[in-house]
Design a protein around this nucleic acid. Structure first.
Lengths: 127, 127
DNA sequence: TAACACTATGTAATAATATAACATATATTA
DNA sequence: TAATATATGTTATATTATTACATAGTGTTA
């Protein structure tokens, strides 16, 4: 549980206080006043934050969300629900689900160390 | 089960005979001799093919693979294993898994109509 | 402390992925 | 046939992400 560097902290704070997933260039625009000027600076911080599990990438949306699931210290097992209308994204933390997926074996008996699951549907408001 | 249009058929054939997922611009380069010259022509065909379930998008890789799972006529429930070394992608068809995920309810009792699951690990060859 | 390894930063350029806007054509069906 | 929906062609542009190179800070450890 290392400390974050300056850029990592700035970017994490932004993502963490955002109610919705943020895209890399949205982040860039929002941190330019803090001296982060180039895409690469953003992507490098994002890579690191993903690596250490502070944030997750929503692959189908190219967007990043802070991890609010104390059990995933490392970015290895993620599950989200995504509303197809309002795009609200929520991290799912279900012991049953993670257990099921962590123990899942394919036809060849292979187990997998990581997974990413995205559920799509309509959220309460949009139903 | 409608017929595919000319561009859709060309692009589906290419993806279907590929042993690995193909990216949009790789597809473009490979169909230029058949008269498909612009990215948009490729993306439009891909969108349609995904929509009718003939192909799936591997979100974490921005790549497309033909569906070899007779049960998913519609692109609504997909699961893949991805090797982190050689990038081999395999569609998982497990009755147990699809049943579990189709019936999964979140904390609020919400069920989801679609999902996409990507497992990461090492394939047999790369272990 | 000096040497080293490692991690992070800054900057410019460019690559890779995807869509907007507009014009036309083909297929389907009422 | 008229109307509607779907597909195509083309140009331009937006969005997302990486390469390459130079520099700076941080933490060992000899």
């Amino acid at each position: 549980m290392q400390n974050l560097s300056k850029n990592q902290q700035i970017i994490f704070d932004l993502i963490d206080k955002s109610p919705e997933p943020l895209k890399a260039y949205t982040i860039l625009y929002n941190v330019q006043k803090k001296g982060i000027k180039a895409p690469l600076q953003v992507y490098r911080a994002l890579d690191k934050l993903v690596q250490i599990g502070k944030i997750h990438k929503i692959e189908s949306r190219n967007a990043f969300i802070a991890c609010h699931n104390s059990s995933c210290q490392v970015a290895k097992a993620t599950a989200f629900s995504i509303c197809e209308i309002c795009e609200k994204v929520t991290e799912i933390s279900s012991a049953g689900l993670s257990k099921y997926l962590a123990n899942f074996k394919d036809k060849d008996g292979m187990k997998y160390s990581k997974y990413n699951l995205e559920f799509f549907g309509l959220c309460k408001k949009c139903r």
